[in-house]
Structures are given as structure tokens and as C-alpha cells.
């Protein structure tokens, strides 16, 4: 009987209409909500204001308080900037090609035929997360000295970018591969006479296109923001071009317009990504 008394007391305490979701009473819930909205406002401002300030700077006129689009219109004519944007977009394409043509087939092949190696490969794929880019670049310097004997183009950076993108893309791909019943599908296809190439290209890939899209978006976002390797190896991509401009002319309007543009582009990519990811999860659940 003694153990029932506290229960009864709580039942009496909790009133007529308890908010069941978090097991809290009205007044408490109200206080919590006030606290929550305060937190959301403060953090929201902290995250939004710098972005808005940058956007505002990009339309700053010659005199303070004036609006002007000159910072945007001079992007194409600013020395070196357009070629840097072009190089960066081409690098993103090349890196995506590495992922699509080398990493994707290999990961599928491992799941289909060489399962015993999958743990080791998974470890290798995540390794770049624990080796900072600035450390990797120390060891890459002699390798790139060698590459520069043959080709001087900044496009050669795609070799490293493929490695840097590996942890993110391989995890996205692994999630996609895990959702496909590879064994049944491949056995069915093989018993109908399909070659392994057909199995990969026409059976497995169409079943994981969302994972492929995820991997591509993550890779593109990474390449668009990459700075460390490019600046240390003295190549020019978008981020290093902006860095050099800022070093030479501190408050060039073109900095803010290009940054805002690049940022909006990257935001769009990652928002698409989160949307795609959510839809997949919902369908599975």
C-alpha cells in the first residue's frame, strides 16, 4: 500500500489535462517553450546576421548607405576570377567522375564478389577524416612536384579531391547499397544470363540513384569550398582566388558578391541533399 501513495499524489498533482508528450504540466511547459523560443531567436540571429551582412556588403555603393550592383557586375571582368570559377566547376565535374567511374563500381564490386575485403576498404575510405588536409598536403607536395613535370593545370587537383571526398561519398554510397538486396538481385540477374557488368550497370545502379545523387552533391559541395590543398600547392581555384583578392585589396566588393553567390549555390546543393535524404528515409520508414 505504501508504494501506491506517491503514485496517487503524482496523479493528483498532474491535474486534469497533462501535456503527455514530454510528461509536463502546463505552467512548466509554458516556461520551457518561452526558453526554447528565446534560444531559437538568439541562435537564429547568430547564424543569419553574418550571412545577411555579407549579402548587404555585396550591394554596397561607393558611398555608405547607397545601393549598387557593381560588385556583382564586375565578377566576370575581375582579373582571374572568372577563370577560377570555371576551374572550380570543372574540378567538381572531374571529382564526381572519379567517384562515379572508380569508387562506385569498386564499392558495388566489393559487395558483390569480394566481401572479405569490405571492412578494410571501409576503414581506408574513412581514413581521410582522421588525416587533416593540411597534413596530407605535406606528403602530397613531392607527388605534385612530379605531376607538374607533365602537366601544370590546376585541374590536376582532382586526384586529391577524390580522396578528400571519399569519406562522405562512400558513406552515402554505403547507405544506398545497404538498402538494396544485392544478393537476390544479382543472383536473379546472373541466373538469367547477365554479365557482371550488366548486373552493376543495369541492376544495382538504378536501385541506388539517390545514393549516387547524394554522393555527387556532397562531393560538389566539398570541391566548391576546398582551400587548404589548393593554396598550399599554389594552385588557383575559387577559394584561393578570393583569398588572394582579399590579401591584396582588403574590402573589394567583388569578394562579398562572389562569396554570396558561391554560398547560395552551395546552400542550394546541400538543401537539395537534405530533401533527398529525408524523402528516402520516409519511404523506408
Amino acid at each position: 500500500m505504501a508504494s501506491v501513495a506517491p503514485l496517487a499524489a503524482i496523479a493528483a498533482q498532474s491535474g486534469t489535462a497533462p501535456d503527455t508528450r514530454r510528461g509536463m504540466r502546463g505552467a512548466k511547459r509554458y516556461r520551457l517553450n518561452a526558453f526554447r523560443y528565446l534560444i531559437f531567436c538568439v541562435f537564429g540571429l547568430f547564424f543569419l546576421v553574418p550571412l545577411l551582412a555579407m549579402a548587404r556588403f555585396s550591394v554596397e555603393g561607393t558611398r555608405p548607405g547607397q545601393f549598387s550592383l557593381s560588385a556583382w557586375t564586375q565578377i566576370p571582368s575581375y582579373p582571374g576570377l572568372l577563370s577560377a570559377i570555371e576551374i572550380t566547376l570543372e574540378l567538381a565535374l572531374l571529382t564526381c567522375a572519379v567517384i562515379l567511374l572508380l569508387v562506385v563500381p569498386t564499392l558495388i564490386w566489393i559487395q558483390l564478389r569480394v566481401r572479405w575485403i569490405s571492412r578494410a576498404v571501409e576503414f581506408l575510405c574513412l581514413l581521410p577524416l582522421t588525416i587533416p588536409a593540411i597534413v596530407l598536403v605535406v606528403g602530397l607536395a613531392p607527388i605534385y612536384n612530379y605531376i607538374r613535370h607533365y602537366n601544370l593545370s590546376a585541374l590536376q587537383l582532382f586526384w586529391v579531391y577524390g580522396i578528400l571526398a571519399l569519406p562522405y561519398s562512400s558513406r552515402a554510397l554505403a547507405a544506398g547499397l545497404g538498402a538494396v538486396d544485392l544478393k537476390t538481385l544479382s543472383e536473379a540477374a546472373r541466373s538469367l544470363g547477365a554479365s557482371w557488368l550488366t548486373v552493376i550497370w543495369r541492376i544495382v545502379v538504378p536501385n541506388m540513384w539517390q545514393a549516387l545523387l547524394n554522393a555527387m552533391l556532397l562531393t560538389t559541395a566539398l570541391v566548391l569550398g576546398e582551400f587548404t590543398v589548393a593554396v598550399t600547392l599554389l594552385y588557383t581555384n575559387l577559394q584561393t582566388a578570393l583569398y588572394y583578392i582579399s590579401r591584396d585589396t582588403n574590402n573589394a566588393g567583388v569578394l562579398f558578391s562572389t562569396s554570396t553567390g558561391a554560398l547560395v549555390f552551395a546552400f542550394m546543393l546541400l538543401m537539395i541533399l537534405s530533401y533527398v535524404g529525408r524523402r528516402r528515409r520516409r519511404r523506408r520508414g
Binding site: 551582412a53 556588403f57 577559394q239 538543401m271
Partner: peptide, 17 residues
Amino acid sequence: VLAQFGGVTLAFAFLAT
């Protein structure tokens, strides 16, 4: 999105703020 938003542009955003 913001967890991956580092880099040169972030410094510019705070420079403007």
C-alpha cells in the same frame, strides 16, 4: 549545412558583420 560551412567565405561574412 552550416557545420560544413567553413573556409574563406566564413571569414568574409564575419568581416562584413
